[in-house]
Simulated scan of single mutants.
Amino acid sequence: MNVSGERLDSEWVRGWCEETTAALKTVMSSHLPTHGFPPGDNAVVLATDESSKATDALVNLTPIPSDLTTLYWVMGEASLPDVEHGYFIHSASTVADHFRDYGAVQVDDDPSAIVFASDGGGHLFAVSGSGRVWKSITASWFGDFEVAAESVQGFLEQVGPSRCR
Score class of each variant (00 low, 15 high):
Tyr72Ala: 10
Val44Gln: 00
Ser128Asp: 14
Pro161Gln: 15
Leu32Asp: 07
Cys164Gln: 05
Ser4Glu: 13
Ser79His: 15
Glu150Ala: 15
Asp108Tyr: 11
Glu18Arg: 13
Leu46Cys: 03
Thr26Asn: 06
Gly15Trp: 05
Met28Glu: 11
Gly76Arg: 08
Cys17Leu: 11
Thr55Asn: 10
Ser140Ala: 06
Pro161Lys: 14
Asp56Gln: 09
Ser140Leu: 04
Asp49Ile: 10
Val147Ile: 12
Trp16Ile: 14
Leu124Ser: 07
His35Met: 09
Asn60Asp: 15
Met1Val: 00
Trp73Pro: 01
Ser30Tyr: 07
Ala92Leu: 12
Pro111Val: 12
Trp73Leu: 12
Arg163Val: 11
Glu84Gln: 13
Ser151Met: 09
Glu150Arg: 14
Asp108Pro: 10
Asp110Val: 03
Ser66His: 11
Pro39Met: 01
Ile89Phe: 00
Ile89Met: 02
Gln106Gly: 00
Gly15Ala: 13
Ser52Asn: 11
Val44Pro: 02
Ala47Arg: 02
Asn2Glu: 05
Asp110Leu: 08
Glu11Ser: 07
Gly122Thr: 05
Ala104Cys: 01
Ala92Cys: 13
Ser118Pro: 01
Phe125Gln: 06
Ala22Ser: 13
Asp109Ala: 09
Pro161Trp: 13
Glu11Cys: 08
Leu80Ala: 06
Glu11Asn: 13
Gly86Lys: 00
